[in-house]
Amino acid sequence: MLTDFFGPTIELWPEILHALGQTGYMMMFAMGIAALAGIPLGTLLYLIRPGSLAQQPRLYAVLDTAVNILRSFPFLILLIVLIPITRFIVGTAIGTTAVIVPLAISAIPDFARLIEQTLLEVNRGVIQAAEAMGASTFQIVTKVLYREARSGIVSTCTIISINFLSFSTVAGLVGGGGIGDFAIRYGYYRYQLDVMAFTVALIVIIVQIIQSTGNYLVRRLDKRH
């Protein structure tokens, strides 16, 4: 009976593996881009916020508003709006590679905001001690802030990675593929509930692996443990 129920799923296993590969490809590159842009932006927001190390209230107000506006865009709308930019960057607006552009851009403001909040949790006394010893702003950021906030930065990466799984579900709209799109195509459009159930279970397992790995690294890096 189980064989009859899961038979179609077993037959589709090569396609499932291909979809998993597409999801991994999108997440790996989008996460890298989001981190490379989001960490510096979040650090800048922290540094120039009122009362911080290099406060610039007006610039902070502009960047803060821009980040909030970008964060308010639903991913599906952003995906459509960014089609011209995606086509300019990768030469096409269709395909797995094309999805990386809106995925990364949608994650950058969230990444930046989470990094800013993580840096704000660093003990102010540690920063003041570094200032008293004559450390430059760059040294404070690289040797104090990032070191003290490393567990929070890993936690941010974990959260964004899990969000990518949700966002990649709509990748099928531009032919991006991925495990989420696979679940919709077979579970919704073809009404193969067994395939959808198996795929959803697979996504849950992936999320648990990402979260468990993130939690482990956070515990290892957190100086309070």
Results as ranks from 00 to 15, higher is better:
71 R>K: 15
71 R>L: 12
75 F>C: 01
80 I>T: 14
81 V>L: 14
66 A>N: 06
86 T>M: 05
67 V>H: 00
65 T>M: 11
67 V>E: 00
90 V>R: 07
92 T>M: 02
89 I>Q: 07
81 V>N: 09
81 V>C: 13
90 V>D: 12
87 R>I: 15
58 R>V: 11
57 P>L: 06
81 V>K: 14
67 V>A: 05
73 F>E: 08
85 I>H: 10
74 P>V: 11
87 R>D: 11
57 P>K: 08
72 S>M: 06
71 R>C: 12
69 I>S: 06
71 R>Q: 14
75 F>P: 01
70 L>C: 00
66 A>H: 09
68 N>Q: 15
90 V>N: 11
67 V>K: 01
67 V>G: 01
83 I>T: 14
62 V>I: 13
88 F>K: 15
65 T>E: 07
70 L>T: 01
71 R>W: 04
57 P>R: 11
64 D>R: 07
57 P>T: 09
60 Y>V: 01
71 R>N: 10
77 I>Y: 07
92 T>R: 15
62 V>K: 01
84 P>A: 12
58 R>F: 12
86 T>E: 04
91 G>R: 01
59 L>H: 07
65 T>P: 01
72 S>T: 14
82 L>V: 07
75 F>L: 02
91 G>Y: 02
91 G>Q: 00
91 G>D: 04
72 S>N: 09
56 Q>F: 08
90 V>Y: 10
87 R>L: 09
69 I>A: 13
68 N>P: 00
71 R>H: 09
76 L>T: 11
75 F>H: 10
90 V>T: 14
76 L>P: 02
87 R>Y: 13
62 V>T: 15
56 Q>C: 05
69 I>N: 09
